[in-house]
Simulated assay, not measured.
Amino acid sequence: MEKIIGFIGAGNMGSAMAGGMISSGLIKKENIIFSDINEEALEKINKNLGVETTTDNIRVADKADIIILAVKPNLYKTVIDEINDSIKDNSIIISIAAGVTVSNIENYFGREIKLARTMPNTPALVKEGMTALMPNNKLTWEEIKEIKSLLGTFGKVEIVEEKLIDSVIAVSGSSPAYVFMLIEAMGDAGVLEGMARDKAYYFAAQAVLGAAKMVLETGEHPGKLKDMVCSPGGTTIEAVAKLEERGFKSAVIEAMRVCAEKSRNM
């Protein structure tokens, strides 16, 4: 893809996205530029990825064909006000912020723009991200496919309706934190049973990875896969019964409900 990709904001997510684009071979490092007010963050990006960096957001807007707004939601209006005059009619804007809608961003620009709102998650750091893509009606199908290709360099991508964004945040955007808590708890239990902590986390994390892969690759209902592990009178059903007794599933559902509610109220 012979496009210039510009990132405004040099945080972990932007770095992960750019790293995926480069390692996939889709985008050359010479065709990526980052801006940020934090020069230390820019030095880290330059050292790790070898891309061009600048403290000037307008330089990114002038140079890039696709501009990824990788700043905090509360900075969107300020950044857009700064770069608005430099955004060309055929420039594509990609948003990765929670709580900033397509309509919000279009209003900040005050004119028609080509815009894709996205919601990636932190496993993008290891190229196993899950990204929701919500294009506005100014993007052509070819441009949407191009954006999907970019986002696909660091994980999976699905187009969703923007009205589902709060569900996406609960199910995918925030959920790595729940899984990390599960792995931590499994590791603690392993230590309690005599395993070394590093080994306990390794076994737990690989079990979670393998279980997730089974869901994705078999297409079977998770409940059916769970039943396959539960032999009559065996160890697993004993553990499952205790989890049900303690409200495991209802606790997860309630946590995700409040997560979605928080997203709606941002």
Rank of each mutant, 00 (worst) to 15 (best):
I147P: 02
E82C: 12
E261W: 01
V60P: 09
M17D: 06
A116E: 04
V215K: 11
E43K: 15
T55S: 12
I67Q: 06
G190C: 00
S172N: 10
I5Q: 13
D36L: 03
V51M: 06
A207S: 10
V208P: 09
A196I: 03
K28T: 07
L75H: 01
T236E: 04
N136I: 09
A97L: 09
N121T: 11
P232V: 05
E158S: 08
P135C: 10
T53D: 08
I58M: 05
K44R: 14
I169D: 08
G210L: 11
M119I: 13
E143F: 02
R111F: 03
E161Q: 09
N90Q: 06
I33Y: 00
K3G: 03
D62R: 15
A207N: 03
G173S: 06
D56A: 07
Y76L: 15
S263R: 03
A97E: 07
K127R: 15
F154T: 12
L225W: 08
D198W: 00
K63I: 12
I58D: 09
K3D: 07
Q206L: 10
A116N: 01
E146M: 15
S23C: 07
G223A: 11
K224C: 00
E112P: 04
E146H: 07
W141V: 14
N48A: 13
A16S: 11
